[in-house]
């Protein structure tokens, strides 16, 4: 590694620590969200620099792209309600009054806990690094079985084949998160019209230009997973982002679908993954073990289903959180009148 490379890494590491600190310590939630977006970007660069394009791709799509939209839009939707309660015309520039939560409480106990947790983590981390086996643990075993995996990219082989249940449960985690949102804010968002259509040439043009591109790139990334970094999660995130863009621009974007169709879309990937896994049992294979000769095709089917479900779930996150914010704002308005 050259000196310039080391300089680059040092600068990037400083960035990451600074941004993480500011994201945690920022007094306003809007600021914290923006620092978090910048942090995601710096992390993606760090993963790229460490030679992990798979993680960089996921971080770029989720950490820097999608999560930022969810945070900013939810803050905007919820602060509308708070704002009308506190002052009819909020401060539009720095908006200290507009931020829900306002200033964070500072407590010595929290600080002490954080420091203790940091120290404990460092100790565990050092111990784990010291015990790391030579040759990267299971890397050799995974490499040796690549021929049976049905795909050419080792990360996809591990995620969708060798440790398929991990990925299956991850899709389940998304589903659980969705259920959490259902419980917290209800699912009325699906039946409601979104904000009135936008009369903005720029947004309109941008949507018409970007959405087809996003759908295309989503399919490309999904297909790429077979041989290169890519796959269901990243692809689903991009597809979900296309839906979110449509909603932001005032299009209905699946809003006319009945609620049962939404629910089907949400569980589709998880259910199909499970069905494929269980179908292996009567054939005398292990749970989630694909037949070796057609493993590639099965992986593509499962990945496509998961990508669609992930896209649906992320769009539903957006729709539900937004509807909850709107409802709160409306309730505030009614109280004010």
């Amino acid at each position: 590694m050259t000196t310039v490379g080391i300089l680059f890494d040092l600068l990037l590491a400083t960035f990451i620590v600074l941004l993480a600190w500011r994201a945690l310590a920022a007094a306003m939630l809007y600021q914290a969200a923006i620092f978090f977006i910048a942090f995601g970007l710096a992390m993606a660069l760090a993963w790229a620099r460490m030679g992990a394009p798979d993680v960089a791709l996921a971080e770029a799509a989720i950490g820097a792209g999608l999560l930022g939209v969810l945070l900013i839009d939810s803050l905007a939707a919820f602060s509308r309600g708070r704002q009308s309660r506190e002052a009819p015309k909020g401060n539009m520039t720095g908006a200290p009054t507009a931020d829900p939560g306002g200033r964070r409480p500072k407590s010595r106990a929290a600080l002490a806990t954080a420091v203790a947790a940091g120290v404990a983590f460092t100790v565990v981390w050092i111990a784990a690094v010291a015990r790391m086996p030579d040759g990267g643990g299971l890397t050799a075993a995974a490499d040796a079985s690549m021929a049976d995996s049905g795909v050419e990219h080792p990360v996809t082989a591990v995620l969708l084949n060798f440790r398929g249940y991990d990925t299956w449960l991850e899709v389940g985690v998304l589903l659980l998160a969705m259920l959490g949102i259902f419980c917290a804010v209800g699912r009325t968002g699906f039946e409601r019209e979104r904000r009135p259509a936008v009369n903005d040439l720029l947004i309109d043009w941008l949507t018409r230009a970007l959405v087809p591109l996003m759908v295309l790139v989503s399919g490309y990334i999904l297909w790429l997973g077979k041989s290169d970094p890519g796959g269901a999660f990243q692809s689903g995130v991009i597809l979900g982002a296309a839906g979110i863009l449509l909603r932001i621009a005032g299009f209905r974007a699946f809003g006319h679908l009945p609620v049962w169709a939404w629910k089907t879309g949400l569980v589709f990937g998880f259910a199909l993954f499970l069905a494929v896994g269980v179908a292996a049992l009567p054939a005398g294979r292990a749970f989630l073990e694909y037949p070796a000769e057609s493993a590639g095709a099965w992986i593509l089917v499962v990945e496509t289903a998961c990508a669609l479900s992930i896209a649906f779930t992320l769009l539903a996150f957006f729709v539900c959180l937004n509807a909850a914010g709107e409802r709160e704002a409306e309730a505030q308005h009614r109280n004010a009148d």
Partner: peptide, 18 residues
């Protein structure tokens, strides 16, 4: 590519919210 595609969404969400 993914970065370039998704980055603009945050700005849209921000301006629309405002």
């Amino acid at each position: 590519l993914v970065f370039a595609l998704l980055a603009v969404l945050v700005v849209l969400a921000f301006t629309r919210g405002r």
